Simulated scan of single mutants.
Amino acid sequence: MIARSKHTMRDRLSDSSELLQRAALVMLELSRRDLSIATAESCTGGDFAALLTDVEGVSHAFDSGFVAYSDDAKIRCLGIDPKLIAEHGAVSREVAVAMADGALQRSSANFAISVTGFAGPTEEGREGDVHFALAARQDWTVGRHEKFGPLGRGTIRGLCLRVLLDMIEERLSQVND
């Protein structure tokens, strides 16, 4: 039998109050501007959606979250072209962009953010190789690539949450009220 955690993201990240505070500020700012976000996650397994939805009183700023861990899920849930995955690999800028665009198209959110990468060891030595993308309606999609290195699954996932927050904060600083 597999034990399930009954703890919220807040409980699991209790040692990271800075991360929780940043998430709260992002959600409050989205709410204040009457904007919403959708997430498309692979290597973080829904941790980012959990972090954002743990913020009380701003549920209308979170539209939806897609956890598309397998290639098949990326194709089915986010509409990724199988040829894109075959040509570039599931962990690539192209797929991260397509994930964000797919989440945006399948939601009513103003923004969609995605992450795909290797949180654990790989035969190719690509642990910590992660691609991110942020899409906005009637605007372009921006990508980001990080090579965190072999820091361990939990550490890499935590770093991914920070990058995702960085990207949203940067985008919000560029959007006029």
Rank of each mutant, 00 (worst) to 15 (best):
R32S: 14
D54M: 06
Y69K: 03
T44G: 10
A68P: 02
K74M: 02
L51P: 07
V58Q: 09
I37T: 00
R76Q: 14
D72C: 02
F66T: 05
R33N: 09
S70I: 02
E56P: 13
D63E: 13
H60N: 09
T39A: 08
G45C: 12
F48L: 07
A73P: 01
S59P: 00
R33S: 07
A73Q: 13
H60S: 13
F48Y: 15
S59D: 09
L52I: 00
D63K: 11
T53D: 01
V58N: 10
A50Q: 12
R76H: 11
L30F: 05
G57R: 13
R33F: 07
A73H: 04
S36R: 09
S36I: 03
A61N: 03
R33A: 10
A73E: 13
D72K: 15
L30P: 05
D63P: 07
A68D: 06
D63Q: 09
G45I: 05
D63N: 15
L52G: 00
L78W: 05
A49P: 10
A50W: 02
G45V: 06
V55P: 12
A50Y: 04
E56Q: 14
C43G: 10
G57A: 09
A38W: 02
G79Q: 04
V58H: 14
D72P: 02
S59H: 10
A40L: 05
G79T: 02
V67D: 08
V55N: 01
A38F: 01
D54I: 02
F48C: 09
A61C: 04
R32W: 11
S36V: 02
V55R: 03
I37L: 09
C77A: 13
S31Y: 14
G57E: 05
A68T: 15
S42M: 05
A61K: 05
H60Q: 12
L78I: 07
F66R: 07
L35S: 02
F62W: 09
F66L: 04
I80S: 08
S42I: 04
H60I: 00
L30Q: 03
D54P: 07
D34F: 00
R76V: 04
A40V: 06
L30D: 03
D34N: 14
L30Y: 05
L51K: 01
D72E: 15
C77E: 13
D63F: 11
S36W: 01
T44D: 07
R32Y: 12
S36A: 14
S70D: 01
C77F: 12
D72F: 04
S64T: 12
A73S: 15
E56T: 14
D47V: 00
F62M: 09
C77H: 07
L52K: 01
T39D: 05
C77S: 12
L78A: 08
S31Q: 13
T53V: 11
L78S: 07
A38Y: 03
V58K: 10
R32L: 12
H60V: 00
A49M: 10
G57V: 11
D34P: 00
G45R: 11
V67H: 12
A40E: 01
Y69R: 04
R32I: 00
